[in-house]
C-alpha cells in the first residue's frame, strides 16, 4: 500500500530537473584567461573557424569605434557574455497553479542583462520579430543537463577584437552542474562568418559571498568630437596592428588569421614548418 501510494504520488509530479541551477554564481576565468580579462589582442583570430568575410570585417575594425556614443554601451550578445568576469543569478519562474517551470531566468551582471529561457515548449518567434542582445531562448532538460537553443540574436562579437558574429547565428548551450561548480558550454553556428560551429566552455562557482557587483551602469558621452556620421575603420590592407600578435608571441603570422584548421591538434605539425614573424622593434 505504501509503495503503491508512493508510486502514484511520484507519477503526479511535474517533469522537473535532476538538478536545480538556482542561486548566484561567479565566473572562474582560468580558461582562456587572456581573452577574458583585458581582452584579446588585435589580429588574434587563432583557433576560431572564421572565414574570409570575418577576417576582412575584423581587419577593418578600429577599436576607436567603441568611442562613438551610440556604440559605447553596446552589450555582449548571449553567445559571448558568459565569457566575462561576471556574476550570474539563476532562478526559476513557476506557474502558480501547476508549479511547473515556465522559464529559467538568468540575470547577468555584465550590462545588467536579464535573460529568459522558456521551458514551456513555446515556439520561437517569427523571423520578423526583433532581435535582442540575449536573443530568444528555449530550454529542455536532457538528464541532468539543461540544454538551451537561442535564435534572434543581434550582431555581436565572436571575439572582442572586431571578429563579428552575425545576426543569423544560432546558439546551443549546455548548463552542467557539478555540486558547487557549473560548466557552461556554448556552441555557436554562424552561416555568415564561420565555416564550422565554435564550441567554448566556461566554469562558474556557486557564490555565497554576497560580494558580487551586480550593476553595470553605462551612460554614453561624447569622448571624441567627430564629423557627424564618421565611422572609424581601417581600409583593406591598411590596419597597422595585424602582425603585432604574432610578433609579440613569436608565432608564424598565418595561424593568427584563424580558420577551422587552426582549431585541431594536427595543425601543430603544419605550424612547425612556418616562418616565425619578425619580432616587434624595440621601443
Amino acid at each position: 500500500m505504501v509503495k503503491a501510494f508512493l508510486l502514484i504520488g511520484l507519477s503526479a509530479l511535474p517533469m522537473v530537473a535532476q538538478v536545480n541551477l538556482s542561486g548566484e554564481w561567479a565566473a572562474r576565468t582560468h580558461e582562456d584567461q587572456g581573452e577574458r580579462g583585458a581582452g584579446p589582442e588585435l589580429g588574434d583570430y587563432l583557433g576560431l573557424p572564421v572565414n574570409d568575410a570575418a577576417r576582412l570585417r575584423a581587419d577593418s575594425w578600429n577599436p576607436s569605434r567603441i568611442t562613438l556614443p551610440e556604440e559605447q554601451c553596446r552589450v555582449h550578445i548571449a553567445s559571448y557574455i558568459y565569457r566575462g568576469p561576471m556574476a550570474l543569478r539563476i532562478w526559476e519562474e513557476k506557474d502558480p497553479d501547476s508549479q511547473k517551470v515556465i522559464a529559467i531566468k538568468n540575470y547577468i551582471s555584465t550590462y545588467e542583462q536579464t535573460r529568459t529561457i522558456w521551458m514551456d515548449g513555446r515556439p520561437h518567434p517569427s523571423a520578423n520579430a526583433p532581435h535582442t542582445w540575449m536573443g530568444f531562448s528555449t530550454g529542455k532538460w536532457e538528464g541532468d543537463v539543461l540544454t538551451v537553443y537561442t535564435t534572434h540574436l543581434k550582431t555581436g562579437w565572436l571575439r572582442r577584437n572586431g571578429l563579428p558574429e552575425s545576426d543569423k547565428a544560432t546558439l546551443v548551450e549546455h548548463f552542467l552542474r557539478h555540486g558547487n561548480y557549473m560548466t557552461h558550454v556554448s556552441i555557436v553556428t554562424d552561416p555568415v562568418y564561420m565555416t564550422e560551429p565554435l564550441i567554448k566552455s566556461e566554469d562558474l562557482e556557486f557564490d555565497t559571498s554576497e560580494s558580487a557587483a551586480w550593476l553595470w551602469p553605462c551612460e554614453p558621452v561624447v569622448e571624441i568630437v567627430r564629423p557627424k556620421g564618421e565611422v572609424p575603420a581601417y581600409l583593406p590592407g591598411a590596419n597597422p596592428f595585424l602582425h603585432e600578435f604574432a610578433a609579440r608571441w613569436g608565432l608564424p603570422f598565418e595561424p593568427t588569421r584563424g580558420g577551422a584548421e587552426t582549431m585541431y591538434p594536427e595543425y601543430r605539425k603544419k605550424l612547425k614548418a612556418m616562418p616565425i614573424e619578425k619580432p616587434l622593434p624595440a621601443k
Partner: peptide
C-alpha cells in the same frame, strides 16, 4: 525585414559608411 531598434540601424549605418 524584421522589426528593429537603434542598435540594428547603427550596424547598417556603419556598414554603408565603411
Amino acid at each position: 525585414g524584421r522589426i528593429c531598434d537603434e542598435a540594428d540601424v547603427i550596424e547598417y549605418r556603419d556598414m554603408m559608411t565603411i
